Amino acid sequence: MKHTLVLAVSIAALSLAGCKKSEAPEGNATATTAASEDPMTGAMAPATPAATPGQTFADTAAASDQFEIESSKLAATKAQSAKVKTFAEQMIKAHTDSTAKLKTAAANASPAITPAPKLTAMQQQTLDDLNTKSGAEFDAAYAKAQADAHQMTLDTLKAYSANGDVPSLKSFATTLVPIVTAHLNMVKGLAKS
């Protein structure tokens, strides 16, 4: 009798688990993992669409500008070297201008794109680390952070310039490649001095 009860409970549990399976075809696994049940109505909410390559690029570019501006604002107050402070002022202006150009290029996309300048975990960690430093130690850390950030940005711009899917963003990327290259060369010179 005890074994029959355990068997009956097991079958009931398996039957209930089977009721929760999605009825989507096997090839549509993403829709089943992204869709969620509305707790009020019990209806399935539509899956959130994945970001388009254009949106991803715009978000990455916006975050890059945001990081450059925020880290350079720190340099304006924490740097010891006049060269570092001057470079930081140039980066604030250049990346503020870049953000304005990005917004224009994104607005000209069809459909329009709104860049979201959310810093990556690595960018936020770098800012937090820079905030703990001052003087010559800050100058060295800032120069390294700027060199790394500009190299990553340059790589992203070159890739999107070559293979981008949104013409206005592709043009933006192409226009910025020589500017970011110049910034990278400037910061490499800064690190040597």
Rank of each mutant, 00 (worst) to 15 (best):
K2L: 15
G27I: 07
K133T: 07
P46E: 11
G42S: 10
E37L: 14
I11N: 09
Q55W: 06
H150Y: 00
M44F: 10
K103I: 07
A147I: 14
P167A: 09
Q123L: 05
V84W: 03
A173D: 02
S64Q: 11
T156S: 02
G54L: 03
P115E: 09
A140W: 03
F172H: 08
Q90L: 09
G135A: 01
T175C: 00
K2R: 15
A58D: 02
A106T: 12
A116G: 10
K144N: 05
T96L: 04
S72M: 08
S15N: 08
T104W: 11
A140D: 09
P39W: 06
T4Q: 15
T96P: 08
A43G: 11
C19K: 09
Q66M: 11
V6I: 13
T77A: 13
V84C: 03
A51H: 10
D148L: 00
H183K: 04
F138G: 00
A13Y: 05
A76W: 01
T33A: 11
M186S: 15
K133P: 04
K20N: 12
E23S: 15
Q66F: 05
D38S: 13
D38M: 10
G54D: 05
G27Y: 10
A45N: 15
L169H: 04
K133I: 09
T126M: 05
V187H: 08
G54T: 07
A94Y: 07
E137K: 12
H95T: 13
M1V: 08
T132L: 06
N108M: 10
P53S: 05
K78F: 03
E37H: 11
T60E: 12
K2Y: 14
E137Y: 03
T153P: 00
G27P: 01
M44P: 02
L14T: 15
L102V: 12
P117Q: 05
F57Q: 04
K103L: 03
A29Q: 10
H95N: 13
S168R: 04
A62F: 04
K133C: 09
Q125H: 14
Q124V: 05
S71Q: 12
A50E: 07
K21A: 13
T132I: 05
G135H: 02
S161L: 02
A24Q: 14
F87V: 12
M186A: 14
K133A: 10
K73F: 02
T30N: 14
A94C: 10
T181D: 07
Q151D: 01
E26G: 13
A143L: 00
K192A: 14
T33Q: 13
D155G: 03
T4L: 14
D139H: 02
E89M: 09
D97K: 13
G135M: 02
P117C: 06
M1E: 15
T156L: 00
T48C: 05
H95P: 08
H183C: 04
